[in-house]
């Protein structure tokens, strides 16, 4: 995946069964963002692989004050890349599901 400066990882082990997964996101390189975030903490959240889109979550992070609206796309892309990898792994492990 492209290095967006925003890192997204699984916050718990993925057993491949739940549609809702816990993810952790943090800024690795603030220079890649248009506006430097106020906090440099890791944000943990749940994401539903079936019902939600990464862009929706990114928008909620902007509305919650974690990121500036000009960075909503880069945050959404970072989440989307990680989610795509998780879904690809699930499909490899258990084809036909997910």
């Amino acid at each position: 995946a492209e290095d967006t400066g925003v890192r997204v990882e699984l916050a718990e082990e993925d057993n491949g069964r739940k549609s809702s997964i816990a993810l952790r996101l943090w800024v690795e390189d603030a220079k890649k963002l248009k506006v430097k975030p106020k906090d440099n903490g890791a944000i943990e959240f749940t994401f539903d692989l079936e019902k939600e889109t990464p862009e929706d979550v990114a928008q909620e992070m902007v509305e919650s004050g974690f990121f500036h609206e000009n960075d909503v796309k880069i945050v959404g892309k970072s989440i989307r890349d990680r989610v795509a990898l998780i879904q690809w792994r699930r499909e490899r492990i258990c084809p036909g599901h997910g």
Binding site: F45, E60, M61
Partner: peptide, 27 residues
């Protein structure tokens, strides 16, 4: 370690905790 919880109006819960230094990229 201070942990902050932010609940978005849509109901999603964001839990903020410090990033361990080992996970920060060298700048």
């Amino acid at each position: 370690i201070a942990v902050t919880q932010v609940v978005h109006s849509a109901g999603r819960r964001f839990i903020v905790s410090p990033v361990p230094e080992s996970r920060l990229k060298d700048q």
